[in-house]
Design a binder for these strands. Sequence first.
DNA 1: CGCCTGACGAAAC
DNA 2: GGTTTCGCCAGGC
Length: 127
Amino acid sequence: MATKRTKTEKPRSVAPSGRKDENFFEQVFEVVRQIPKGRVTSYGAIAACLGTKGSSRMVGWAMNGSHRVRPKVPAQRVVNRNGMLTGKFHFETITKMEELLKKDGVQVKNDKVVDFRKLFWDPLLEL
DNA sequence: CGCCTGACGAAAC
DNA sequence: GGTTTCGCCAGGC
């Protein structure tokens, strides 16, 4: 494990090969994939974990490409600060998100996660 | 280079 | 608690 990922280091340009550095998106997916089953987190938490605290919107935006990324990214586990399933409209079906969450063991009521605070998984705290 | 958009967040009403 | 407004930053055009 020579690759020690420390949140302190955060070089923007890391693709001198001329390749398009999707570092931002990639990091978002990486964190989301590490979300344990039955847990949820917020966009702002991920953004803060990446160091771009103010770019909470960019996190959700990155999720837009999560559908085409493999392995599949459990975007359903990522909700807003209020625990609301704001991204459900971007899924295949608006019900797919809560279905996946329920399958993970997360109760969803009225488009929002039940006991979101209790199920909240903070990447900054866990990683 | 400038303007608009956006799966957010916090504050105000 | 729900709705509206502003601020945030990166990407698309």
